[in-house]
Write a protein that binds this DNA or RNA. Structure first.
Lengths: 126, 126
DNA sequence: TCATTATTTAAGCAAATGCTTAAATAATGA
DNA sequence: TCATTATTTAAGCATTTGCTTAAATAATGA
């Protein structure tokens, strides 16, 4: 951004622009946090994992690997990302580690699962 | 995936696993489509753009560049991605191109804006 | 027609992503 | 104690992402 390539039109409403700047500034943290969660859900594999955890309550990396036909390390790395992002949690039972959805962000995530099931319903009826 | 590194535990419930596989298979397309949209929203800059379009109804790349303090090409490339993903549309007025949210996916996106504004409210009251 | 303005496109590049394979941890049970 | 099982971690690598700068399009108005 070298100040070049900048529009200088008079159509621009400086009040509106300034208003928008303030809105963005006031919500900076929300944008960062929300976009982080959305980018976690914005991956095919992770969205499937989240969906399966919602359906089954708890699953281990091993099960997920079986279900999704992916290597255990690949699954494990996805789970770690989501754990770091606080959208999944885990408990240990023997040598098995059971992952589950954390409740904090369920309000955000649940509509996604609903959408998935709705579309499913649609294709089933056809 | 070389079949190696696979858990062979007896704890696994083969019925459950198979059930899960079916659920995933039945919704394959939904996962792909939904995760694509979420990954678009799962970026700080794009989430801000979406939020601003919701608030202001229409904005041009130039305005967005001003508001977000980013180069015009950077903004333009984000807008193109979202246009390709069908979550924004555009109309031309003279040499200005006005971008806006497409209605199709608003049901999915609106809760995000709500969350942003809620958090904003909270911090304002403090 | 030509300079100006708004936008897009393209090439280049550093950083992030998502897998792979191999090795490291940790719990279990013989 | 030692082999087995479940999981994580780490290194390597190809691909994708998101910016930059420079050049290409396209509309406007003198």
């Amino acid at each position: 951004m070298e100040g070049k390539n900048v529009c200088i039109r008079e159509l621009a409403d400086p009040v509106q622009i300034n208003d928008c700047r303030k809105k963005v500034a006031a919500n900076e943290k929300s944008f960062t946090q929300l976009s982080a969660i959305l980018s976690l859900a914005g991956n095919d594999v992770r969205l499937k994992i989240l969906y399966l955890l919602e359906e089954e309550k708890e699953l281990c990396p091993c099960d997920l690997s079986d279900i999704l036909g992916m290597s255990i390390p690949a699954i494990s790395q996805h789970l770690r990302k989501m754990k770091d992002g606080d959208i999944v949690g885990s408990r240990k039972v023997g040598q098995t580690i059971l992952y589950s959805l954390r409740t904090e962000h369920l309000k955000l995530l649940r509509p996604f699962f609903k959408i998935i099931n709705q579309v499913n319903l649609k294709t089933e009826t056809v």
